[in-house]
């Protein structure tokens, strides 16, 4: 917003036409911003701060606080954690590509006026509002080996050889979860792309038509570049989601089979709530936070550079 240098909005609007002497803005604002700020502080800032402090503290709760780097040195040597983080990377690459490509295609199809538009837009947003637990249960059933709809369907088509234990086989478990994640979140990214497509300047498109560009050329040289910033937004959101994924994994596989779907957050969960190693788990979460911060800053920078060109 660019009005920061002018007098406040309420004064300009004439709410108090000739206020003789008003309190400074900082005081006036206080009663309005305090409740919300308090909520944010207690539930967001404070826990984050405590977590960073805890990561330098003792492993178990209740022990006297001595600041050390032990949790971090443990973390460096913890192969399970880095292994799990590798899964996050796999998850991020696959789910981001899947979500971005699919949602872009769907947004193109959903854009403009056609019969059934409202219906289809609602349909693709439906999985976004269903809770992770419900979706994990539904797809857990779909992917189940013996009675799951996918395998039963494959067998009835005579494709017994393609039926697999989608969640119980280490080769497929991660891909199955990624698939379900794409299924759930594509609708969300479609909304972002749709907003972008609605804001597309029509004159560029028209000029290209006049210049004799065919549909494919217009798509590649106009639509895709103009949508770049939305692609970056979607990529950042999907990447951050991939690095912090927990609920879906926990509902569907709990990190199994044979740790094939362990991700960073399931490691944090295990260490904190199963092994009661709160200090260590805090260090893991803090590192994860740092990674996510770095990833989003890098993506933002890349986006800015791409836009300047």
């Amino acid at each position: 917003m660019s009005r920061s240098t002018q007098s406040p909005a309420w004064a300009r609007a004439g709410a108090l036409p000739r206020a003789p002497r008003r309190l400074p803005d900082a005081v006036m604002a206080l009663p309005w911003i305090m409740p919300g700020l308090l909520l944010f502080f207690v539930f967001v800032h404070l826990p984050m701060l405590i977590q960073v402090v805890m990561s330098f503290g003792p492993d178990q709760l209740g022990k006297p606080f001595v600041a050390t780097l032990k949790n971090y040195s443990d973390l460096v040597a913890d192969r399970k954690f880095w292994f799990a983080l590798g899964h996050n990377l796999h998850y991020a690459v696959a789910s981001v590509i899947g979500k971005v490509v699919l949602s872009f295609a769907l947004a193109l199809a959903l854009n403009g006026a056609f019969f059934g538009r409202t219906f289809f837009r609602a349909v693709f947003f439906l999985p976004v509002v269903i809770s992770f637990v419900a979706i994990g249960t539904v797809w857990g059933f779909m992917l189940q080996y013996q009675y799951g709809a996918i395998n039963v369907g494959l067998r009835s088509l005579g494709l017994e050889g393609l039926a697999a234990d989608w969640l119980g086989d280490p080769r497929f478990a991660m891909w199955s979860i990624i698939f379900v994640d794409i299924w759930k979140w594509t609708g969300f990214h479609v909304i972002i792309y749709l907003a972008g497509l609605q804001a597309l300047p029509g004159d560029v498109e028209e000029a290209a038509v006049v210049d004799g560009a065919n549909a494919w050329q217009r798509f590649v040289y106009i639509t895709v570049p103009l949508m770049k910033r939305y692609t970056i937004t979607n990529t950042i959101i999907a990447t951050l989601g991939a690095f912090s994924v927990f609920d879906l994994v926990f509902v569907m596989t709990k990190g199994g089979p044979f740790n094939a779907t362990q991700v960073a957050m399931t490691q944090v969960y295990l260490n904190a709530f199963q092994f009661q190693r709160f200090g260590y788990a805090s260090a893991q979460a803090t590192i994860l936070l740092l990674i996510m911060a770095v990833v989003s800053v890098v993506l933002l920078r890349l986006g800015q550079r791409a836009e300047q060109r």
């Binding site: 944010f40 539930f43 967001v44 800032h45 404070l46 826990p47 984050m48 405590i50 977590q51 805890m54 709760l61 950042i236 951050l240 989601g241 912090s244 927990f246 957050m265 944090v268 904190a272 709530f273 709160f278 788990a281 805090s282 979460a285 994860l288 936070l289 996510m292 989003s296």
Partner: peptide, 16 residues
């Protein structure tokens, strides 16, 4: 803060 998922600092919340 909006970009940081709540899971990331779930431990202090749990202790809280």
């Amino acid at each position: 803060m909006l970009t940081i998922p709540a899971q990331i600092y779930i431990i202090p919340l749990y202790i809280l």
